[in-house]
Design a protein around this nucleic acid. Structure first.
Lengths: 194, 194, 194, 194
DNA sequence: CATGAATGAGTTTTCATTCAT
DNA sequence: TATGAATGAAAACTCATTCAT
């Protein structure tokens, strides 16, 4: 999947973002040199600065892009009128599909969770997504479908469960098959349903 | 809790390890300058190199120390003869107490792009601990107490659930009270029991 | 004479090599700071690392370059068919001219003789040059022109005589005029001829 | 031979000077760390500063001590009334014996020739010795025994010849037997006699 | 637009020297 | 007197960023 779904504003911009994603996940933000990003992207080091004001600007663009993409995909996949268990199935399916298609993105988004180089706008994006999710959980709790406990805790158990599965799969410690994803869905539904 | 449980071999060594833990969690390994560690530890920059061969040696010492401390505390807390639900209670209690007492350690241990700077010995320590846990889970699965699915996946859902709770608590997004921990225990037991 | 005889691949590289030569002779390898080399070369400190992997790489490049240049100039100047005394005259003339034109190089090559920071390739270069010279001396000994004694000793008396003359001239203790060089040639020929 | 011929003021001082000599010859002045000298001397690092004001003070003490020892031994060995060839024999014998007994000292004295860390007193010592030698050579030139050329040049050919022989012997490139030393004496006498 | 050579501020690390014991 | 842990200044080296081409 391309970073620019519709209009590839620039192949180079995309190449830079993809290279940056790879390296930030592999070595972390501070452990990644800008010339290394340029080399992997197949562009000159100076070129990066035509598309991004700075290294910090680059990591923030990457973060916001994917955070929004993830939120959008999840929201689009969940039908507001479906019954709760079906909604959870759609939600988990969306998350799992995303984690499967973009395992590096998934690792990146948590790696850089709340990091000092994320700017106000990125934090705002993060908070917006969280608030959306919290409202969704709270509504189901009001309906008595989910357990009465902090909505945040419910979200965490589900989301970080998938983070853990994805990371361990990336490290080769777990084979993240469809079966395992289905089993995990069942587990987590049992974890949170009232 | 002191890094040297019995004999504080050296106050400075301990101070350095504690300062390094704080900063590695706050800013990451590559984002942390050695003089910053020294300053927070209240020692001269050169002093760090009297206790650790290099910055890499320091992060590895820190990792191994705490990985072993965590494993030791958990193992010590679980009675091999207790009934399964009680064993899970002991396990979760040990983990939760550890995460509560050393939230930074808990964050640090999973702060992975460790991949690039952890040495062979540290990886071996990690693998040893994992194998221990896997054996424990597999035994309960054989007894039909836990769901038939990859043991690793079960471990991940529980462990990363707590990682998520701890990290979000650190970020101020969640108030990790005893109540929440008890509720989470109930959730996760329902997640994994057969 | 330029370090790049034909094509000055890079003015900066040459400037760095020349600055390094000056400083290594003045203050020794370990006594010379890389930024000092940069300053004398009129480049930024980081620039040195665009042309040389490390300080050690720099000193080795310098050593090999000049060792080969010296050997080449000597070999080119000696006619294989000339009578022995004439060959010695050519040899001495070549050496003396080199020492006169590049007194610092001459000092450098002996200063760094067998130093711990010279790598395998540099030692190989050194050995190759020495073997060439030894063969030359041995042939003249076989012809009964030079005294029967270790070829190495003969080479040393001539070569180190010139090293001493050059070094003392550099220190201002001796005025190394053409006359003195001619007289020294006469002395050393009498020293080694049968 | 002990650094303090008569009264061993202190074993530690001697041990330090001997260790420093070894290391300065092996790695140069700037390449030698004071703690490394202490370790080889078998004393604490701080102890060095009870005997020498600084590293520079240490290298100067070492230089002066051995320069004077060398000069003294040579002077003592040459009989002012002997015939010239015999005087040269005594001189060469003294030098050669010294170089044989203390090859590292011989290397050290020229390695550190006129280096920037030698102080005024060390330079004065050097100059005094040179002037003595120059007067000796000049007298023989006046008698028509040695060639009419700068006295300094004559001294250099002889002295640096031995320096070269000693250094190459140390490097293992030459076996410096008594035979070779006798042959070299003959060579150098032929080099300088009128 | 795109580049990559150049740079200096900042990083990790070493070491001469001090000083409490 | 002797020590060696401690240190900060300075070393080698890296890298985000700029700018001439």
């Amino acid at each position: 999947m391309n970073i620019h779904s519709h209009v590839p504003l620039s192949d180079k911009r995309t190449a830079i973002l993809e290279a940056a994603l790879d390296l930030f996940v592999e070595r972390g933000y501070h452990g990644t040199a800008v010339p290394a990003v340029a080399e992997r992207a197949g562009v000159g080091a100076g070129t990066i600065y035509r598309y991004f004001k700075s290294k910090e600007d680059l990591v923030n663009a990457l973060f916001r892009h994917w955070k929004q993409a993830l939120a959008g995909q999840i929201i689009a996949g969940v039908s507001p009128t479906a019954p709760p268990r079906e909604q959870f199935h759609q939600l988990w399916g969306g998350l799992a599909r995303f984690a499967r298609n973009h395992p590096k993105v998934f690792a990146f988004l948590e790696l850089h969770h709340h990091a000092s180089y994320l700017d106000e706008e990125s934090r705002a994006t993060e908070t917006r997504v969280l608030d959306l999710a919290r409202a969704f959980v709270a509504r189901l709790q009001d309906q008595g479908v989910l357990r009465p406990m902090p909505a945040m805790a419910i979200m965490i158990l589900v989301y970080w469960g998938l983070v853990g599965l994805t990371r361990c799969a990336q490290e080769g410690r777990l084979d993240l098959t469809d079966d395992v994803l289905v089993q995990a869905e069942e587990c987590l539904w049992d974890a949170i349903r009232a």
